[in-house]
Design a protein around this nucleic acid. Structure first.
Length: 482
RNA sequence: GCCUCCAUGGUCUAGCGGUCAGGACGUCGCCCUCUCAAGGCGGAAUCACGGGUUCAAGUCCCGUUGGAGGUACCA
């Protein structure tokens, strides 16, 4: 048996991180078993569909490196892979269920139902459809359907006993049948609901392992009843716990939580996101933390899956990102950092290569770069209190003296290289017989106007160039004299 | 409310009857150092609670509490 998994998102917007994780696990499991990974678009609720969302799913999957073997844009033998394009497939199956008594047409209107639901809520009871239309004789029902009267098709749930199934992760899940509502299978507009389409499609597409969010745990018995009614083999279920934002809320765009695309835009690297997401609810059984996608395919196991919801910890993602950035080849880093440098330094004639060397071990996320290097573009306003540093033993007066003495020294440098600057300053310090910090600190403050900078005085002087360095030193002197 | 599920430091987790409860992020301290990082070293911090079962319970059972999911002509 070939393993076939599917990721079946609804085109309601961006690809959220919980969805990405589900997709990842589906992908890993399929690949590990030399099976097929399928993308299916579940767009049966046309009202919720967002323009362009389908394309966004394709591009996000591509960006994540999660290549599917079958899908709307790549084809496959089990297509179409978009449910609205499969619309005509579902009704005959529903009719078959009506014939066998596992479903029935329902003529109750939404308004009517809403009223009853409300009444139930007032009495504190869980609303369940009362099977009113189930008792309509088949002939009469057929006549009314043929006459053009609006109807939906409902699944006819058993009222006694209980249904259970084995979930790979959660074990036996048992639900009393009287808890099962007669779900709508086919809506009034002829479109199937998720409850129906997922079963039909999973079967028709020969899906062997259904991996999906835990929100389906308690409705899965209903789907199984459908498989049974058709005499189809039930798939293997692996429900995945949700990804949370904090202890009580799940990750949601509405709360401003980033989507996969957002993360990419912020300057998180795809491999770091994937690596982190993989470990959110799964562990390899040892203490290993770094995995490429291929290594994940190798290492993934259902046994390592966790049952409880996990909180998406941004700090750890940041750390992963940092590790990936720090360890990426320098050329690669420079290439990715360049657009971020450009935001502040475009046209400024700054040695990006040298700058990148200084920032690589300081970049957790690329979007931190502009703020980190902005002082190179323009000297920020700063407080002369910056010149006072206890450990460096500097204060305003000392800094003023140092800067003044340093002007001619710096002016005398012809070859404005880090080596020469370094040598010159070392000599100056030696002559004065003071501590390094006493000279470097005021110089760095004058040049950057910031307490913290990537790199020290020498590197900054080099990056700024001779003119700008002297200019900023003079500005510092002016500030200190007033 | 009802149904289903879950429960190890702040977070992600290891553990599958006998461990000094392991790792990672974060956090704190020290070293290095012209700042911030990086790097090195070290510290604090966890089995939700209550009953059982057992010679022995984080591990098994029951209950409580807390949390999540479901309860749509949404998925």
């Amino acid at each position: 048996m070939t393993v076939r998994t599917r990721f079946a998102p609804s085109p309601t917007g961006y690809l959220h991180l919980g969805g990405l994780r589900t997709a990842l696990y589906c992908y890993l499991f399929a690949k590990q078993n030399k099976g097929k990974f399928i993308l299916r678009i579940e767009d049966t609720d046309q009202e919720r569909e967002v323009d362009g969302a389908i394309e966004m799913i394709y591009s996000s999957m591509r960006a994540a490196g999660l290549h599917y073997d079958e899908g709307p844009d790549v084809g496959g033998e089990y297509g179409p892979y978009i449910q609205t394009e499969r619309k005509d497939i579902y009704l005959p199956y529903a009719m078959q269920l009506i014939e066998s008594g596992h479903a029935y047409p329902c003529f109750c209107t939404v308004e009517e139902l809403a009223e009853r639901r409300e009444a139930a809520a007032e009495n504190g009871i869980t609303f369940k459809y009362d099977k009113k239309c189930a008792s309509i004789p088949k002939d009469e029902a057929k006549k009314r359907m043929a006459s053009g009267e609006p109807y939906v098709i409902r699944q006819n749930m058993p009222i006694e006993g209980s249904s259970s199934y084995e979930d790979v992760l959660f074990g036996t899940v048992e639900v009393p049948n009287n808890e099962l509502d007669d779900n709508v299978l086919i809506k009034q507009n002829g479109m199937p609901t998720y409850n129906f389409a997922n079963v039909i499609d999973d079967h028709l597409m020969a899906i062997t392992h259904v991996m999906r969010g835990s929100e389906y745990i308690s409705s899965t018995p209903k789907y199984n009843l459908l498989y049974d009614a058709f005499g189809w083999e039930r798939p293997i279920y692996i429900h995945l716990p949700v990804v949370m934002k904090d202890a009580t809320r799940k990750l949601s765009k509405r709360y401003g939580d980033p989507s996969f695309e957002d993360l990419l835009d912020m300057g998180y690297v795809k491999d770091a996101i994937i690596n982190f997401i993989a470990l959110l609810g799964w562990n390899p059984g040892d203490n290993r933390e770094f995995f490429t996608l291929d290594e994940l395919v190798e290492a993934f196991s259902l046994e390592g899956l966790s049952k409880s919801p996990s909180i998406f910890n941004m700090d750890k993602l940041k750390w992963f990102n940092f590790e990936y950035i720090r360890n990426m080849p320098f050329a690669n880093y420079l290439k990715q950092a360049t657009p971020w440098f450009d935001k502040e330094l475009q046209g400024k004639n700054i040695d990006y290569k040298r700058l990148a060397e200084l920032t690589q071990t300081r970049t957790e996320v690329f979007n931190q770069l502009p703020e980190m290097i902005d002082f190179l573009a323009e000297l920020p306003e700063y407080d002369i209190a910056f010149y006072t540093h206890k450990k460096m033993k500097t204060n305003s007066e000392i800094s003023l003296t140092i800067l003044k003495e340093l002007i001619p020294v710096m002016e005398g440098i012809d070859d404005w290289s880090e080596n020469t600057i370094h040598e010159t300053l070392v000599n100056f310090i030696a002559e004065k017989g003071c501590k390094n910090g006493l000279v470097y600190w005021p110089l760095r403050i004058a040049m950057s106007g910031k307490l913290n900078t990537p790199g020290g005085a020498i590197e900054i002087a080099y990056l700024l160039g001779k003119n700008e360095t002297l200019k900023r030193m003079n500005i510092g002197i002016d500030k200190l004299e007033n």
